[in-house]
């Protein structure tokens, strides 16, 4: 990728090297200046006083450890990750069913599946969550799970459909010609390969799902963001910046770990599977062949 980008500009000659050095210095100074300005302004408002103590020494009878336990255990694990852990397996099963239904020989089944994908990809997850709370009287947890499951099922089915479309046509034909039924061809030949090619996209979708759990904050589900708010309300105004900062660091770390997993799997696929190595461009454009 990096050598591809370099094509946009010449391998710099002596003059360009000098010019780039000047730009580098100028922009570095500009950014350093900007950051220094922000830090100075923040310092004027007393951001760097002992308010950060709340994260390690604690406050009001809480130790620093208590604060982190609230954030990481009550918020991240028992809130955010719990919803993710319930939603993901359900999404996997339903998305497989929906993908199979979209290729079904019966037209009616195909249309229902097509309609489901388009309708639920186009509706906000938050609306589905509110629907769970207000119309179905679900607990906040189950309302969150409902929203996550319905939306992500539609999206994952769409990803798998693109994966199947990206397979060489001969795969399906070969399956059918050795006497497998269309369903068996789908289950044993097309889907396993589609899942494999689309693995990076599927894992990226987990990041989306993880971030969407934070909508639970709005419908009163206790997850990381709700815990964050409860904590800074409890500790008072000065604790807002440290606690929101800690919470952001947790979100970013978890999501980057998941994203890194996607990159690692992508690299491994490229090494081990000739099909996947040949296809990623086509998959990127989600183009049926």
């Amino acid at each position: 990728m990096s050598d591809k980008q370099q094509v946009l500009y010449d391998v710099p000659g002596p003059k360009a090297v000098r010019r780039d050095k000047v730009y580098t210095v100028v922009f570095t100074l500009a950014f350093v200046g900007l950051i220094a300005g922000l830090v100075y302004g923040a310092a004027q408002r007393g951001i760097f006083d002992d308010r950060w103590n709340v994260l390690w020494a604690g406050d009001r009878g809480f130790t620093g450890l208590d604060v982190w336990r609230r954030l990481l255990w009550d918020g991240l694990v028992l809130g955010t990750l719990k919803a993710v852990a319930i939603a993901v397996p359900v999404v996997v099963v339903l998305a497989l069913v929906l993908t199979i239904a979209r290729q079904a020989p019966t037209r009616g089944v195909r249309w229902v599946a097509y309609g489901f994908t388009h309708v639920f990809r186009g509706i906000p997850v938050l609306l589905l969550m509110y629907f769970g709370v207000l119309a179905l009287n679900l607990d906040p947890l189950w309302a969150v799970v409902l929203g996550l499951v319905v939306y992500n099922t539609a999206v994952v089915a769409e990803i798998l459909r693109a994966g199947i479309a990206a397979l060489p046509k001969g795969q399906k034909e070969a399956g059918l010609s050795i006497g497998l039924s269309p369903l068996a061809t789908m289950l044993r030949i097309q889907l396993p390969q589609a899942v494999r090619i689309m693995m990076p996209a599927l894992i990226s979708q987990i990041v989306v799902l993880l971030k969407d759990t934070s909508l639970g904050f709005i419908i009163a589900y206790v997850e990381l963001l709700t815990v964050t708010k409860n904590l800074y309300n409890f500790f008072g105004n000065t604790s807002i910046v440290p606690i929101v900062f800690a919470s952001a660091v947790i979100y970013i770390t978890v999501n980057m770990l998941v994203a890194r997993l996607a990159t690692a799997i992508e690299a491994r696929l490229r090494r081990t599977s000739p099909v996947a190595a040949a296809e990623p461009e086509a998959v990127g454009a989600a183009g049926p062949h």
């Binding site: 990041v207 971030k211 759990t213 909508l215 964050t228 952001a248 979100y251």
Partner: peptide, 18 residues
């Protein structure tokens, strides 16, 4: 990698003092 909701919470609560 940050949820949009956190962006809102940041703007509401932390941005004024930070």
């Amino acid at each position: 990698n940050t949820p949009l909701t956190l962006m809102f919470v940041f703007l509401v609560s932390a941005a004024p003092s930070l």
